[in-house]
Amino acid sequence: MRVTFLGTSGAVPTTQRNTSALLVNRDGDRLLFDCGEGTQRQMMRFNTGFAVDHVFVTHLHGDHVLGIPGLIQTFDFNDREDPLAIHAPSGTRGQVENLVHAGGNDPAFPVRIHQVDAGDVVLDRDEYEVRAVRTDHRTNAVGYALVEADRKGRFDREKAEEELGIPPGPKYSKLHRGEPVEHDGRTVEPEEVVGPPRPGRRLVYTGDTRPTDAVAAAAEDADLLVHDATFASDWADRARDTAHSTAREAAAIADRADAKRLALTHISTRYAGDHTPIEREAREHFDGDAWVPDDGERLEVPFPDEADAE
């Protein structure tokens, strides 16, 4: 799983940071979370490719959606034929349709708008799902959790071959699928050579939000939590008034959730020249890895057992 931070600024872009967008490449599935103005250029600049089939919108404030019209028109210019799904909070269909058809544009490819509520399974795949998470902002808003299914346990080839005398071949595959096999006059059960299921990865992206119990629950044991950290605590009143979080509050959520990594995003232009107050404050209140990613930064998210082995 590769995460590319396309836009990490707050409501206003800076010369170094674009407005909100995050691209997740999950084994070839490219999932775009939010699409602030200029996202398509960021995608070109950072070589993510345009093979995006799903856009997950947290809310309809401009810094999270104004890149949609340009992105769709670029898809059109590139003769796209595959459908595009845009997932957005309930009650926003009309606004999303206006973005899709901005300037009288009528895409030649299907654009399907799906309205979602907190708790919905927004995208259901065999190996993972994307769920909507309740957040707290000034408008109808959700976050998203990408949750992978458990993986098969490790296959103990040495035991199968040397202790049980099973030669490599189809029986290995059957055992790894959880099916018993007959060998040397007895039944070999899968649990004899296959370890317990191994957890998949979990990524949570909040969009703009106050700290919430729902995000903490969704981010339990998360491999990566991408959380609003618009301000440092000296602007806590402003964060509360505008329904954003401070770095300290984001860190507290990550700490409660026992997340492994915390990426602090939606950084106010107050910190355009120096984001260290945000980073320092989060690190004081969270023992895991907390940082402010730069636009264009890529992060490989390992499986939990691989991370533990590092």
Rank of each mutant, 00 (worst) to 15 (best):
N18L: 12
Y271S: 01
T276P: 02
R154F: 15
I166W: 04
G169I: 07
P69N: 07
H54Y: 10
V194P: 00
V181L: 10
N105R: 07
E220G: 09
Y172W: 12
E161Y: 14
M44R: 13
E127N: 12
F109W: 04
T187G: 01
D29G: 01
H61E: 12
T74E: 06
D120T: 11
E220Q: 14
D241H: 06
K174M: 09
I253V: 14
A217E: 13
R238Y: 06
R210L: 09
R210N: 04
W291T: 11
L299H: 10
A118P: 13
E182G: 13
D234G: 11
T230A: 06
G36R: 03
E284Q: 13
V133P: 01
L225T: 02
G200W: 01
A309W: 06
P196T: 02
E297A: 12
G207E: 01
T19Y: 01
G103L: 09
V96Q: 12
D295K: 00
D120C: 12
V55T: 02
D308K: 11
I68V: 05
T246F: 04
E158H: 07
L225I: 07
E81V: 15
A243W: 07
T8G: 04
Q40G: 04
E300T: 15
T246H: 02
H114Y: 07
D126W: 11
H176I: 03
N105C: 12
T48L: 13
E279G: 03
T276G: 07
R177M: 04
E129R: 12
P277H: 11
G195N: 03
N25R: 02
V65L: 05
D213W: 10
R138A: 08
G103W: 08
P168M: 10
R154G: 08
V215S: 03
